[in-house]
Amino acid sequence: MPDHAPDPAAGERIFWAGGCASCHASPVDGKRAKGDDKLLLGGGLELETDYGVFRVPNISSHPGDGIGEWSLVEFVNAMQRGVSPDGRHYYPSFPYTSYARMPVEDVMDLRAFLDTLPPVEGRIAPHSLGFPWSIRRGLGLWKRRYLNTDPVTRAAAPTLEEHGRLLVEGAGHCGECHTPRDRFGGLVRERWLAGAPNPEGKGRVPNITPGGKTISEWSAADIAYYLESGFTPEFDTVGGTMVAVQENLAKLSEEDREAIAAYLKALPALH
């Protein structure tokens, strides 16, 4: 672990960039949490996918039911290696393959912020997955193939694009929905951010490379404004699962959103 004093305020930025609350905040009356309820990370959301039902765990600071007792090393291992404190593999529905690309200092800051949030009681039932996905040990092989810390795109010097790359490829884990998966559920890097079937239902998650049908018409300023306000250049509003993502990204700085836009504009155009 690097010699870094964890900073909860810096961790809050990572918390919103990563959208932790979108999955881990306890649903309220069956609907996704809004406002301050997003800070109650008791889990319980159910993700219905082709692999089965994933149940999102409690990551609040509760000592027994949440992750309050975890050491910092255990937290970093969970986030960046997909390993639990008792040595089990996590399913990649928890997108540690993206978080593996985060600077470890950001992960340390995130933990410091999570420690400031209230404990929430309640343990969540395990996932219900179909065979062969139910064999957790198989994930060891899966990780050999799909888990690494290499950037997806070639990193430039510390430019705005590089700043955006860290957010998009790392904490923001945009590729987890916007990139198609192969038959083992690994991301197809050749089709990075080029759009994919919706993992949670019908329809498609759009192509957000400069070759994408809609986004190709947008300027970098349009993308940044969309992430800030939720309005497209045609003044339609953001929809679907992107609503929660946009609301999280609205909490970042203008520079962060400009960086995300600059990165997306610099991608190769895929069709």
Binding site: G203, G230, F231, T237, V238, G239, G240, V243
Partner: peptide, 11 residues
């Protein structure tokens, strides 16, 4: 606009 679309519009 957004407040209403989020709850009362499908994609």
């Amino acid at each position: 606009c957004k407040g209403c679309h989020d709850n009362y519009r499908i994609e």
